[in-house]
Each structure stands twice: as C-alpha cells, then as structure tokens.
C-alpha cells in the first residue's frame, strides 16, 4: 500500500496523485493533498464543520468538481480544511462533512495559491484493489 497521496510536478503548475482503498478514501485523500499544497494540514484544527454536496456527469468530473468546491471555499471564504468524511458517493454525486477552520495569519503558513483543479491529464483508475487519481492544478 502506497501513502495517501503524492505531489507531482508540471512545468507551469502542480499536480497530485491520490490513492485510496476505496473511492471514498480516494476522494478524501485527494482533498487532503489539495490542502497540503495550500498549507501544512497539521496546523488546521477541525473546529468548524462544512457540509458539501457536489454533482457531475461522471466520476472523473466529480473529482474535479469536488476539488474546485474546496478551492472555492478557500478562495472566497478563507476556509482551510483537513478532515473529509465522505458520507455518500456514487458515480455522479458526493456528500461530505468537512472539518477545518478559517485562515489565521498567525497560525497558518500559506504555501501555494491553488486557483483551480483542471481536466488536463486527469486520470482516475483502479489498479488491483487500489484506486488512483491524478489531478493537475492551476496555481
């Protein structure tokens, strides 16, 4: 079993490869990878709960939508998240309870301004028992 995610390089931008024993774990690890690009996830306390629902025409798009939803929360409302309980997941719909807090200049060090999850080189597949997804972000 590999780790929960890896960060990969892309000349103009940056990407992630997330792993998961099931699709729910994959989606939650991809979210964690995203926030590890933005800041140090260990510094985020799960003080606030955000209930999110996302839909898309297929599972790959759903992953992009899910990550874009989280980027929106960060960029528009300055919310940092570190725990993602995926409560329901189908090929086209996701419901999650996410925990985190608002950005605090003293407590959190911002690393990268991730601005969008892209469809570029987007991959989501199953290798044996393990799910694997690759997403490139615009930063």
């Amino acid at each position: 079993m590999k780790g929960s995610f890896e960060i990969i390089d892309h000349t103009a931008d940056v990407g992630i490869i997330a792993y998961g024993a099931d699709a729910k774990k994959l989606f939650s690890n991809a979210a964690l990878a995203l926030f590890s690009l933005i800041t140090e996830p260990e510094t985020i306390e799960g003080r606030l709960r955000f209930d999110l629902e996302v839909s898309a025409p297929d599972r790959e798009s759903l992953l992009v939508e899910w990550l874009n939803e989280l980027i929106y929360l960060f960029d528009a409302e300055h919310v940092l998240l570190s725990r993602f309980d995926i409560e329901a997941l189908t090929l086209t719909d996701l419901r999650a309870a996410c925990y985190g807090e608002r950005f605090d200049q003293v407590k959190h060090k911002l690393k990268t301004g991730v601005k969008a999850a892209t469809y570029h080189m987007l991959k989501l597949d199953k290798d044996g028992d393990e799910y694997r997804a690759q997403v490139i972000f615009d930063v």
């Binding site: 931008d13 940056v14 990268t112 930063v139």
Partner: peptide
C-alpha cells in the same frame, strides 16, 4: 516562459 516547474 517557464523553464523549471514550480516544484523543481
């Protein structure tokens, strides 16, 4: 135009 990725 970029030569090195941000990570590199």
């Amino acid at each position: 135009g970029r030569l090195l990725s941000r990570g590199a």
